[in-house]
Write a protein that binds this DNA or RNA. Structure first.
Length: 544
RNA sequence: GCAUCGAUGGUCUAGUGGUAUGACUUAGGCCUUCCAAGCCUAUAGCCCGGGUUCAAUUCCCGGUCGAUGCACCA
C-alpha cells in the first residue's frame, strides 16, 4: 500500500538512534521533557486546531472523464476572485460553466466535496463519537498545556517534546519514504513570553553560521546566504532569537546525524505560503539526488494562535500569570450597579443592563445602553462610579509557541542518501555507508582472522565483553576477512575488530576504521570502554 | 485519481503457450596470516485474482506495487 513503510532490523535500529540523537538535543541539552499523547483524538480537538476545517480541500470529480480536481484551483484559474473562500454551492455554481482541464468537456452540474486529509474513525460502541488519527503530534501538547505549566511550576519559558506517529491520508503519496500516510514526527512546543523572544541561551548559537534562503533570495533567485544567527536577528532576517536559536540547533543536529552540510539549507516561507498567524517560518531542506530539495523540518513562531484556539473550543484559560517585580498600584474606575434597584425595574434583563454598565464608562449624567437592540436610558442614581486604587500583583498572558517540527522518516532518508558512497578500492567497487558511529545500527563487529587455532573463541569472548558493557557487537567468521569488512561497510558499521595470531601472544587486536580502512592495534582489556567513547564521540579514531 | 510504461530467486538479468538462463549475494565445506581471491556443494524466483487453453510465468481482463507526466500534497 502506498504511503506506508516497514523498517527492517537495521532500519529500526537506525531510526531509534536518530530519535535518540534528537532527544540528546531537545531533552538533555534543552531540558524539555518528553510526553506521549494518544494518536487518536476526539473531533473537538481537531475542530479547535483547525484541522477539521482547514485540513481539507474542496474537490470535485469531472462527470465526463472522472478526473479529481481541486475545485477552488479551477475557479481561480478561470480568474474568479476569492475562490478559496467560497462555499460548496458557490463553487458549484462557478464550475458549472467551466471546462475540465483534463478532457475539456464543460463540467455542467458537478458536486463539490471536502476531502479531509485526516483519517477518520469512530470511538466506542453505541454513541460512536467521531475521532481522528492525529495529523501532527503537536495538539496533545496544547491540550496538556495546563498540566505542563504546573509541571514547570508556572514559569516561562518551558517546552515539551514528543516523538510519535502521525497520520495523513494523502491523496497520492509518491516518492517512497518522503511522503507517507503514517509517519514519525518529533516535535517540540516551546512556550515563551510574547514580549521576551530573546533566548536566554542565545550565546550558544550566536556565532553559528547557517545557510539561509530568505524571501529576498527566493524572489531574486539567489543562492542562500550564510550568516551568523546573531547577524540574522540583528538584521531582521530571522524574526527573533528563538527562531534563530532553533535554526542553528537544527543545523547542528542534522550534521551530527550525517546530513551533508553542503546539501542543507533553511528556506523561509513566502508570505502567501505561511499560515496567517505565523510570525515567521523556516523549513530545513535537504538536497536529494532523487527528489530535489525536500523539506524535513519546519521551525515556526506560531504566536498564541494554537492556545487561543484551544481556549475557545474548551472554555479553559490557557494563560500564564506573570507577577510584576513590584506590585503596581493602579487607579481604577469601577462601576457598581445598584442591583437592588435594577432588579425590580428590569427583571430578566437586569443582569444584561448591569454588564453593559460595567463595560462602558457612564458619566454622572446617566447613560444610554443597548440591550437586545433596545436603547435604555439609565439614570445616575442606579449606579455608582467609584475611583479606587488597587494593587495589581501581575498580569496574565497567553504564551507564544515556537514549534520546531521534524519528520523523522525524511531525516532517515536524507542520512542514508548522504552517507551512501561507492568508491574504487584496488579496482573494485566498495559500497560504504558513512554513518556517524552513534547512528549506525551496529557499532562494532568482531572477527577472528582465521577460523581455527582458538581465534574464534577469543573473538567471541570480546563480543561478550562488549555486550556486557551495554553495546551491541556482531560476530562474523564466514568467508574471507575482506568480505566481512565489506559487509559491515555496506551497513555502516563504523568499527571492526580482528583477532589474529599476535592477539594470542600480547592480548591486542586490530581495530579498523570504516572510513579510512586504517587499522591500529589496541589492548583487549580496554576495548569495551574504547568502543563506547568512539561511538559517543568523546574520542576519535584518528586520535588513536 | 487519470494516462503511458513496467514487474522473473535477496540483487541484477536471459528467455518461453509445455515450470526458467547467467552473474552477484547467502548458507555448508575445502583453502586462506587483514580488505568482496579460488574450488566443491546447497538454498532460493516467473506480483495477485479471474478468464481463454489439454496446458498460462508467457495471451486477455481486473487489481496491487513501481517509474514518468498531469493533478494533488509540502
Amino acid at each position: 500500500m502506498a504511503g506506508f513503510i516497514d523498517y527492517g532490523p537495521l532500519g529500526s535500529m537506525m531510526k531509534r538512534n536518530i530519535e535518540n540523537a534528537w532527544r540528546r538535543f531537545y531533552i538533555v541539552q534543552e531540558g524539555f521533557y518528553e510526553i506521549e499523547c494518544p494518536t487518536i483524538g476526539q473531533e473537538e480537538i481537531f475542530i479547535a486546531s483547525g484541522h477539521v476545517k482547514g485540513f481539507s480541500d474542496k474537490m470535485c470529480q469531472c462527470p465526463a472523464c472522472g478526473e479529481y480536481l481541486r475545485a477552488d484551483h479551477l475557479a481561480e484559474a478561470a480568474k474568479v476572485t476569492g475562490a478559496s473562500a467560497m462555499g460548496k454551492e458557490e463553487l458549484e455554481a462557478v464550475l458549472c460553466s467551466l471546462p475540465c482541464p483534463a478532457c475539456e468537456e464543460t463540467f455542467g452540474p458537478v458536486e463539490v466535496f471536502n476531502f479531509n486529509l485526516m483519517f477518520e474513525t469512530a470511538i466506542g460502541p453505541g454513541s460512536q463519537r467521531k475521532g481522528y488519527l492525529r495529523p501532527e503530534t503537536a495538539q496533545g501538547m496544547f491540550t496538556d498545556f495546563q498540566r505542563l505549566l504546573r509541571f514547570y511550576r508556572d514559569k516561562l519559558p518551558f517546552g515539551a517534546v514528543q516523538i510519535g506517529k502521525s497520520y495523513r491520508n494523502e491523496i497520492s503519496p509518491r516518492q517512497g519514504m518522503i511522503r507517507l500516510r503514517e509517519f514519525t514526527q518529533a516535535e517540540a512546543e516551546i512556550f515563551v513570553h510574547p514580549d521576551q523572544k530573546d533566548h536566554p541561551e542565545f550565546h550558544r548559537y550566536k556565532d553559528s553560521c547557517v545557510p539561509l534562503l530568505g524571501i529576498p533570495q527566493q524572489e531574486g533567485n539567489l543562492p542562500p546566504e550564510t550568516c551568523t544567527m546573531g547577524d540574522a536577528v540583528a538584521r531582521g532576517v530571522v524574526a527573533n532569537q528563538y527562531v534563530a536559536y532553533y535554526l542553528a540547533l537544527t543545523c547542528e543536529l542534522m550534521v551530527s546525524i550525517g546530513v551533508d552540510p553542503e546539501k542543507l539549507r533553511f528556506r523561509q516561507h513566502l508570505r502567501d505560503e505561511r499560515a496567517h498567524y505565523a510570525m515567521d517560518c523556516w523549513d530545513a531542506e535537504i538536497f536529494s539526488t532523487r527528489f530535489g530539495w525536500v523539506e524535513i523540518v519546519g521551525i515556526a513562531d506560531r504566536t498564541d494562535y494554537d492556545l487561543r484556539a484551544h481556549e475557545r473550543q474548551s472554555g479553559e484559560r490557557f494563560a500564564v500569570f506573570i507577577p510584576y517585580e513590584i506590585p503596581r498600584r493602579e487607579q481604577r474606575i469601577r462601576v457598581v450597579p445598584d442591583m437592588g434597584a435594577l432588579g425590580p425595574r428590569f427583571r430578566g434583563r437586569a443582569k444584561a443592563v448591569a454588564e453593559a454598565l460595567s463595560a462602558g464608562l457612564p458619566g454622572p449624567e446617566g447613560v444610554t445602553v443597548t440591550i437586545d437592540g433596545e436603547e435604555i436610558f439609565i439614570s445616575p442614581d442606579l449606579y455608582q462610579v467609584r475611583e479606587e486604587e488597587v494593587e495589581v500583583p501581575g498580569c496574565e498572558i497567553t504564551p507564544h509557541v515556537i514549534e520546531p517540527s521534524y519528520g523523522i522518516d525524511r531525516m532517515i532518508y536524507a542520512v542514508l542518501e548522504h552517507s551512501y558512497h561507492e568508491e574504487l578500492v584496488d579496482e573494485e567497487e566498495r559500497k560504504v555507508l558513512r554513518l556517524p558511529p552513534s547512528i549506525a545500527p551496529i557499532p562494532v563487529a568482531v572477527f577472528p582472522l582465521m577460523n581455527r587455532d582458538g581465534l574464534p573463541e577469543m573473538a567471541k569472548e570480546i563480543v561478550l565483553r562488549i555486550r556486557e558493557s551495554g553495546l551491541l557487537a556482531e560476530y562474523d567468521d564466514s568467508g574471507a576477512i575482506g568480505r566481512r569488512y565489506r559487509r559491515q561497510d555496506e551497513i555502516g558499521t563504523p568499527f571492526a575488530i580482528t583477532v589474529d595470531y599476535d592477539s594470542k601472544d600480547d592480548e591486542t587486536v586490530t581495530l579498523r576504521d570504516r572510513d579510512s580502512m586504517r587499522q591500529v592495534r589496541v589492548g583487549i582489556n580496554g576495548i569495551p570502554s574504547l568502543i563506547r567513547s568512539l561511538v559517543e564521540g568523546s574520542r576519535s579514531f584518528s586520535g588513536l
